[in-house]
Design a binder for these strands. Structure first.
Lengths: 137, 137
DNA sequence: ATAAATACTATCAAATAGATAGGATTAATA
DNA sequence: TATTAATCCTATCTATTTGATAGTATTTAT
């Protein structure tokens, strides 16, 4: 399962992307209200996305958040990895967060192969998606 | 990610399946030693699998665990769902643990479709697998 | 009886999830 | 320059989950 935090992050980005034509910074409060996301929790999420160069922020009056890149240049997997970490179901098959299992040797692991397949089929779907493609659909 | 607990459960079942020909109950202690799983934690896992009619147990001397069904009749997804719950990445696309999201209407949800696809591709891989198929590979 | 096994109950520590509160800082503008 | 409106930051909190350990009760073969 992805976390609520991750779901909120994706929804917030899609919301911001949908307002791009308005050419102004989007308020945390507006996103929180429209997407039913707890405001203070959303603040943390948006700041994290900014720290990871997905968003840019402007402080003070007329402040808010905007996409730092175009919506089609922000992939769904990038957002998921920033917020939740690995996408794979086992650390030892993760492409971006690989960790060896403590208890087993990978050559003889009975389940590694299956979860590599799951990872690949999952990424087949997710890699094609961007904030732009989610906004359109 | 699946939990360690789930990984242990799968490995324990594969181990037990591999000893089927010996026609005797398998000891928790043997599985723990061979698969490097904490013994007391494994006890809990095996009991949970027994409570869910995957294993049968025998107490006392010469006791231990055996598969309650044949290895090819125990699917990987069944074990994963018993130990970890939903396989899907969103509650609202789970086949076995469906829950509506609090904050959004499903008709207008931008991300539901993608995660339905992920679920389907994941199950394409996992549904084909059983304790038997994992034992052979 | 004894030994060897699971069953059960209770507990625990650390991490993660999911927030909330309150004040500091920045920036536009009147 | 005071005001207002926004993000930024730090601290904190609760509940749940994860991953486990300890100790005792019960069962069973011999």
């Amino acid at each position: 399962m992805i976390s609520n935090k991750c779901k909120y992050a994706i929804k917030a980005l899609v919301y911001i992307a949908g307002k791009e034509e308005e050419d102004r910074a989007i308020l945390t409060a507006d996103i929180a209200r429209e997407q039913q996301i707890p405001r203070k929790f959303l603040e943390i999420i948006l700041r994290e996305l900014r720290n990871n160069r997905i968003l840019e922020s402007k402080r003070g009056k007329d402040g808010g958040f905007r996409l730092l890149r175009t919506a089609e240049d922000i992939s769904l997997t990038e957002v998921m990895r920033i917020i939740d970490g690995p996408i794979a179901m086992l650390p030892c098959v993760s492409l971006n967060y690989y960790r060896k299992c403590d208890e087993c040797e990978e050559e003889s692991c009975e389940i590694k192969g299956v979860f590599e397949q799951v990872r690949d089929r999952t990424l087949d779907v997710l890699n094609g998606q961007t904030i732009k493609s989610l906004t359109l659909s």
